[in-house]
Nucleic acid binder design. Structure first.
Lengths: 351, 351
DNA sequence: TTGTACGCGTTATCAT
DNA sequence: ATGATAACGCGTACAA
């Protein structure tokens, strides 16, 4: 069986006995510019022939693709799924087609993908970037290309960006742990690579502990390889062995994955929370209708909410605004991250 | 700052002192059809001016977009992430652009998205469908439009499809449970909606138990709402109360999510595995470098491997084959699902 | 209110 | 070995 012949604007024009111009006007909402008779005739014919304008021809003519490139640092994180859903919702409902591409935390691939997207004449870019050190993105932005960063930032340039209040989030962890009587805090983080979020949260950790506890925990930052259980256990032991007799220790994870790994290590060593050790971290796994991991591992872990879907939505909206008004100053939108306090840090039952 | 003026094939032609035709030939790999001198001149100019052909103009001219629509039933499942990665890898490395769209298990949205993709002139479709009962997809396939199903099937039509050997997988669960001395099996599944996988696995459950145990467990199929813990617990209690004095019960979940929920309910009731009850299910959460859920919940649960990434890769490859050779008969590719036996079903230590 | 004619960037056809 | 030309489907300046 063959595909049915495509019907074009000319077919409509002929069938309706008008010019293509008029049909074009009709399609583009200039219906006021023609008689009611003409309008109705065109309407009828379009429905009859089931005509749909060719996006491709339109793109060529208008030099505008109505496509937005969306670069995701790592789709395999459930966090990314939520962002994707938010972005898609906004873009699609505004007539844009999102082109999602997965960079697998690979900066080269990110750049390569972006180049190909630009050849495809995307109207703008939403970037959950792989790298905070990103001259390529900066040069694009300097050329006036519409870009909005999502979640992760890039150094040395004032981008449009939607992200979390990381500082406040980490500070509220530290404050909470202090209130609960923990005396010694550690920060467990995956290797830095160029992940801006990790840097920022680490810095917030240092600053907050300094402010709230009065010391600088430079030696209490532990880098872990989440694919190597033994490494995590070793780091945990190292932290434990550095404690004084009467220290009450707690750990903050950089993200869900590291927090999870630490949780596994804690369990492995037979420690119990919050008595032997406290644990908390951001909840960037906002997936599957609230069936989130703190509930899955029936041990309740204290988390900070991350509004991943909203992150995506706001980024998409911001990009559309910038496409409409390119000369506005860059916006920085910061979403809050309220704490969800659970057993893993709750030493004092009634507050 | 303004975007730099776009350089077209005509610019190249002028600068190189040849016709656009010749440049076009050069671009399209017909380099043998011209003198070496010409070839070099064109090459130089293209590099100098950093020329890149316009995909849009090409699409218009060739009536071929080099884009593939990819419909994902529910991106928020980590299983989907793995499929997406596989599909992207194959499509991109073959010069195609995937258009990923999330249907949120909504059949209407699936249809609506597909229509818009077709107006966009995508060259083909990979569909992880929301619905086994899908006349729309069938009608498209009948018109000769290139479609490959991924993971989930559609009734009443012989599609190109890549999926799992569900029958064998469920059968191997049942066989294993029999070997381990369990005497009574139940199947816990989310509401059917139109999810073909669930139907198929349920049927396989009925057939396998009938074959291996010699009875038909029609009353041992429990539908659970994974967002309602109490429901899962209630269903679990119902199953337990239906047991005879000396029954040794085990549960098979339809997928990761339902298995997980059952696990939580089992824990909640203070039961222990495998002594009080056995538990196993497919592992369709193949994400994050093997940090899969059976390990996260440190209780080890027996699973069947699902090669999600491969599912995506094979589907993409199959689609490209069908685009190249539309008249081939539909292929059905079935991937195996080896068991990973863990503590949750291991009553007999040495086999 | 409606229509003519051209161009967006490419490529296929037919010539030379 | 190379080129002129038309056409892909649409939108718009200009004309009537």
């Amino acid at each position: 069986m063959k595909a049915k012949a495509k019907v074009t604007i000319n077919d409509i024009a002929k069938a309706a006995g008008v010019s293509t111009t008029t049909v074009s006007r009709y399609i583009n909402g200039k219906e006021e510019l023609m008689s009611e008779q003409t309008r109705n005739r065109i309407k009828t014919v379009i429905e009859l022939l089931d005509y749909h304008p060719s996006d491709i021809a339109r793109s060529l003519r208008n030099q505008k693709s109505n496509m937005i490139g969306v670069l995701i640092a790592d789709v395999s994180s459930p966090f990314s799924s939520a962002i994707i859903i938010g972005i898609e919702r906004v873009l699609v409902s505004n007539g844009y087609t999102p082109l999602f591409l997965n960079c697998s935390e690979n900066k080269q691939r990110e750049e390569q993908y972006i180049r190909s997207l630009i050849f495809k004449k995307v109207d703008g870019l939403i970037v959950n970037t792989t790298s905070a050190d990103n001259k390529f993105l900066i040069s694009l932005a300097c050329q006036g290309f519409p870009i909005v960063l999502c979640d992760r930032f890039v150094r040395d340039y004032n981008f449009n960006i939607v992200t979390n209040k990381d500082n406040e989030m980490i500070r509220s962890f530290v404050m909470h742990l202090k209130e609960q009587g923990f005396t010694r805090l550690a920060f467990f983080v995956q290797p830095w690579s160029d992940n801006s979020t990790r840097y920022r949260r680490r810095d917030a950790f240092l600053a907050s502990v300094h402010e709230i506890y009065g010391y600088l925990p430079e030696n209490d930052i532990y880098v872990i390889d989440v694919n190597d259980k033994d490494c995590v256990i070793a780091q945990l032991k190292k932290f434990l062995s550095s404690l004084s007799q009467d220290d009450i220790p707690a750990i903050i994870g950089t993200n869900s994955v590291s927090t999870m790994c630490v949780y596994k290590a804690i369990t492995k060593l037979g420690l119990s929370m919050p008595d032997d050790i406290g644990l908390c971290g951001p909840d960037d796994w906002d997936w599957n209708n609230g069936m989130n991991w703190p509930e899955i591992v029936h041990t309740n872990i204290t988390t900070a909410t991350i509004y991943a879907k909203e992150l995506g939505e706001r980024a998409a909206k911001l990009l559309l605004e910038r496409i409409a008004a390119p000369d506005e100053l860059p916006s920085e939108i910061l979403l809050p991250n309220p704490l969800v306090i659970r057993d893993s840090t709750l030493r004092i039952r009634n507050k």
